[in-house]
């Protein structure tokens, strides 16, 4: 989908964060030569089109006490993965849920969920609940806790996305 130069300029201007002033969209408009109404219309359209996936606070998990995260993966039959993936995505502790390709023979899993919790015990309880309630218990799965984070920052390529949300 095509995104105009003006829209790209607008996205670049707000990517670092919205100004904490009474009229932040007017302030953004002043910086790049657009009216407040134009900024608001463009942002609403970008949200509607899905170019902006989310517009709100982005929290740091660890600072909020979410010290454990696991990538949980399942080998779900291809004809069921859509239904089960959508169901898994409704659980509040599932922060991301994707279908990805298997890499056989090394990697047989095609459904990926990121699960955050205050500690590993909590995360394990959440995984058990997810398995029991969604029917995922029927399929081979693996739990990959993170041991260490080496690098976390937006990749530098002009416009930042959610790095977690590859």
């Amino acid at each position: 989908m095509w995104v105009s130069e003006t829209d790209r300029e607008l996205l670049a201007e707000i990517e670092g964060g919205l100004p904490l002033v009474r009229d932040p969209y007017a302030e953004i408009g002043r910086r790049i030569g657009l009216s407040e109404a134009d900024v608001i219309d463009r942002l609403r359209a970008l949200v509607d089109r899905g170019v902006i996936k989310r517009f709100g606070l982005v929290v740091r998990h660890r600072e909020l006490g979410y010290l454990a995260n696991a990538m949980v993966v399942w080998d779900v039959p291809d004809d069921l993965v859509q239904t089960i993936g959508q169901r898994a995505g409704t659980y509040p502790f599932v922060t991301l849920c994707y279908r990805r390709p298997r890499r056989l023979p090394r990697w047989p899993y095609n459904l990926f969920c990121m699960i955050h919790g205050r500690d590993r015990i909590t995360v394990r309880e959440q995984i058990a609940r997810l398995n029991a309630e969604t029917g995922l218990d029927d399929y081979d799965h693996a739990v990959l806790f993170s041991r260490r984070r080496f690098k976390q920052c937006g990749a530098q390529y002009g416009i930042r996305t959610a790095p977690e949300a590859a």
């Binding site: 990517e15 904490l20 929290v59």
Partner: peptide, 17 residues
């Protein structure tokens, strides 16, 4: 440092990335 930022998350693919 509780909030990493306050603003949008973009769809990289729609922006050509």
């Amino acid at each position: 440092g509780v909030l990493s930022r306050f603003g949008p998350l973009y769809d990289a693919e729609q922006l050509g990335g």
